[in-house]
């Protein structure tokens, strides 16, 4: 699957769509680091729903996937360069 994610997608107000729903992705894999990184902050925190525009059903799946990837050291818990 070659799905291109971008946080710079701009929709008309009131017509924001979930990127997972439009690409018809049911489950989110924790090994897929490339897509997970689009939904992570500069401080390595999970982006809230009102920034990324993900629907609630997928946000819950995304948060579990990110937490699993953190546990297996694929994604850091905190920013490395923070004091």
């Amino acid at each position: 699957m070659a799905v291109i994610f971008s946080t710079k997608q701009k929709h008309a107000p009131g017509k924001r769509r979930c990127t997972f729903c439009t690409n018809q992705m049911g489950d989110i894999d924790y090994k897929d680091v490339k897509t997970l990184k689009f939904f992570i902050n500069g401080f390595q925190k999970i982006k809230p729903r009102y920034y990324s525009g993900v629907c609630l059903r997928h946000q819950k799946k995304l948060s579990t996937a990110i937490k699993r990837a953190r546990e297996m050291a694929l994604i850091p818990f905190i920013n490395k360069y923070r004091a």
Binding site: D32, V33, K34, R68, E71
Partner: peptide, 22 residues
Amino acid sequence: LRSMIINIPGDYTYVKYDIKNM
């Protein structure tokens, strides 16, 4: 060092991601 066991759905197909190239 670390291990993890998770449930997966019955019709799960393994997908390879090239994490080294990331």
